[in-house]
């Protein structure tokens, strides 16, 4: 009993000092935060899946007014999709710089990512207003409601991502986001890339396949 008891103490203390913190004590070797983010993203799949399903079901249903697919400006949307796609590149470069400890470069890439995201949102605002001008308001018909809800939800997710990126930049500028916290940047990056892959789906399923 005696030798196991000492063993207990060492491990117990190691664990006690690490409660809820750091990766050394977790069973998987990965931090709670990162695992939690992945679980959350798994959950988000069901949310966007449902929104896409609702749109697919209702895409041709209009008692009055134009359908979304009649108003699409594919060249414009292609450009804004490309902008969002490239923001994933700048995001991953930000993570990479942070891991290597080049905090200035990481900040630059984070700002770039946020700006690309903001460009995408600006494009969405422009798209929505031009649709409304062409006679397709939120409640004009079922297809319109489903379209705005789906793309609007995605837009809200991008906006939340931009706010997180801005917060990261502020933290980094005030010296609170060092190389050792690269994982925080990576976790925000995971969210950002997820929002991007959702748009990859929306761009094809909603815009291109008609």
């Amino acid at each position: 009993m005696a030798d196991t008891a000492t063993h207990d103490v060492t491990l117990g203390e190691a664990f006690a000092a690490e409660v809820g913190s750091g990766h050394h004590a977790t069973n998987t070797g990965y931090t709670n935060e990162k695992l939690g983010m992945w679980v959350f993203l798994g959950s988000e799949c069901l949310l966007f899946g449902g929104l896409i399903t609702t749109y697919l079901l209702y895409q041709d249903r209009a008692v009055e007014g134009p359908l979304p697919k009649d108003l699409y400006d594919i060249p414009f949307t292609s450009v804004s999709s490309f902008v969002l796609l490239m923001s994933s590149l700048t995001m991953v470069l930000a993570v990479s710089s942070q891991v290597q400890g080049d905090l200035r470069r990481a900040r630059t890439w984070l700002v770039g990512t946020a700006l690309l995201g903001a460009t995408f949102i600006a494009g969405q605002v422009y798209e929505f207003t031009s649709f409304v001008k062409e006679g397709m308001g939120y409640t004009t018909n079922l297809a319109a409601s489903a379209f705005y809800t789906l793309t609007g939800f995605h837009g809200v997710h991008v906006t939340v991502g931009i706010i997180m990126l801005a917060s990261l930049v502020a933290l980094s500028a005030s010296g609170r986001l060092g190389q050792d916290r690269a994982e925080t940047v990576e976790i925000v990056g995971l969210y950002w890339h997820f929002v991007d892959v959702v748009w990859i789906l929306i761009f094809t399923i909603v815009y291109l396949i008609t």
Binding site: E33, G36, G178, R181, T184, V188
Partner: peptide, 13 residues
């Protein structure tokens, strides 16, 4: 969702 991160902070220097 909140990302709690509890590792101590080290400045780059």
């Amino acid at each position: 969702m909140a990302l709690t991160e509890e590792r101590p902070l080290a400045l780059t220097t």
